[in-house]
């Protein structure tokens, strides 16, 4: 009996490696190979192109604004849904799923319908002199919209399971809202929150569908890295496109490494605490 099960085990492990190799390593290797097809000198010059720089800056700015925004809103929403009972709670919980379930292209179109020149909110925006579409705010909004559920979805079941009693204990001991949140709630949801933030970040950086529709694809102005890549690719500039793609890949790898590193630190931390 034992022998047979270990054979199956090995088979599964082999399949897993194969999967990783084909779906992850191969594309990564391809991106690297194609980006260097014109030689390393050109690789650098594609990276230095003004369009590339502004795409990188725009992508970073978008992430720097959209990710914390979604984190805060996600926590607030998860708190409300997990810890309170109110009418429409279930509806709200379902509504959160919408950006998740909808294709990013559809999300982009929805945003255009609301903020576009014939959109519902257009008169208000014009009156306030605000530009949303075809400008950075629209990109940030679209990116935040499609990634909105990630943090909330991670936290809601987590918070529901953890329950309220620790928070209640804290307030009976005199802690105010913020003290309770930071000393009691946050440490307990740390991992779920962190994971949600990483997912959000990765998705914001790589978001294409919705952003490409709302951005107007203006080179040097509203082209994020993914949009810029598509722009290059559509202009027959394959090698340049792959070069920028390798940058995106690098960003993704950095995120992964960060996650790994912090997990490691936490594990060490746990060990040291337990010893005393």
């Amino acid at each position: 009996m034992k022998k047979r099960s270990s054979a199956v085990g090995y088979l599964l492990i082999l399949l897993a490696f194969l999967f990783v190799a084909v779906f992850i390593l191969l594309p990564v290797a391809t991106v690297v190979k194609e980006s260097l097809a014109d030689g390393f000198g050109n690789y650098l010059s594609y990276l230095k192109a003004p369009g590339a720089k502004s795409a990188l800056i725009l992508t970073v700015i978008t992430a720097v604004i959209a990710v914390p925004l979604n984190t805060i809103f996600g926590i607030m929403l998860a708190w409300a849904i997990a810890k309170y009972r109110f009418r429409g709670r279930r509806l709200l919980s379902m509504a959160i799923e919408i950006p998740y379930a909808v294709s990013p292209v559809v999300a982009g179109l929805m945003i255009v319908m609301v903020f576009g020149s014939t959109g519902l909110l257009r008169p208000l925006l014009d009156a306030l002199g605000l530009k949303v579409l075809f400008a950075a705010p629209g990109i940030i909004f679209a990116s935040a919209f499609v990634t909105f559920p990630y943090v909330a979805k991670e936290l809601i079941p987590l918070m529901s399971e953890i329950g309220n009693s620790e928070e209640e204990a804290a307030v009976t001991l005199g802690a105010g809202f913020f003290r309770t949140f930071f000393s009691v709630t946050l440490p307990n949801i740390k991992w779920g929150l962190f994971y949600g933030i990483i997912l959000t970040n990765a998705r914001v950086i790589g978001e294409f569908g919705a952003v490409s529709i709302v951005s107007g694809k203006m080179l040097g102005k509203t082209a994020t890295l993914p949009v810029y890549i598509e722009l290059l690719y559509s202009n027959y500039e394959y090698v340049a496109a792959f070069t920028i793609a390798s940058v995106l890949m690098l960003l993704a790898l950095v995120t992964l490494v960060q996650k790994f590193y912090i997990e490691l630190k936490e594990r060490k931390h746990l060990k040291s605490r337990g010893a005393s």
Binding site: E166, A169, V184
Partner: peptide, 8 residues
């Protein structure tokens, strides 16, 4: 008990 899990 509702002890704070993350504290000693």
């Amino acid at each position: 008990y509702a002890l704070f899990q993350n504290m000693t």
